[in-house]
Amino acid sequence: MSETKNTFTLDGQPVVFEAGQTIMNAALAAGHYIPHLCHHREFKPHGSCKVCTVRVNGWLSASCTTPASAGAKVESEAPDIQEARRRIVQMLFIEGNHFCPFCVKSGNCQLQAVAYHLGMEDTSLPHRFPSRAMDASHPDVVLDRDRCINCSLCVRASRDADGKDLFGLSGRGIDTHLVVNSSTGLLKDTNIDANDRAIQVCPTGALLVKRRGYEQPIGERRFDAQAIECEFESKY
């Protein structure tokens, strides 16, 4: 099999990769969706949410941080992997305070869309109902930590795209939380702008632009008619 030099198989289908590419980026470039939340093709991988876990030659590994290797056998949609992903997303839901029925981001939320993709219908675990501080101090931007899943996309986008370095993750384990890089720790004392990439890449409704919401009627939102995998399979 000489053609396996730059090829691995994803659920039995050959995927060609370029040197240095991760399994995730090679799969997405070839039009194969692997569910993910903390990954974004514009930014360095973080490998923290584990939703993109695949089995590479028998070993579980985050596909967003694992380099593609020639001849690797990658399993993504095996029932046990999908079940583990569903459990991870359920844990993200019960760990925070995700009130989908009235959330501004509902219908456009990637956390919700990944849950739909994985066939998640309920949370099944005890809810934590944590008490987290909201930062509504800035005139144009609000940070609702109830909805934050600590994916660090805003941290990377603010540092690498906006050039502002406004966010960071602090604490460990269950106490991990998003912090704002200003003298007061509040958004009002930063130079964040409503057009910042950091806000746009938030997969949930944790970072939102004020005075904008419910702009599309139910039925016309991003994930109402089309599942998230369709978006990725058609875009690349």
Binding site: N97, F99, C100, E121, D122, T123, F129
Partner: peptide
């Protein structure tokens, strides 16, 4: 059968849990 967001997650009444 748990029907709807309140039965499944606590829903809007659970906002008071903060």
């Amino acid at each position: 059968v748990a029907v709807g967001s309140c039965a499944i997650t606590g829903g809007v009444p659970a906002v008071r849990n903060k």
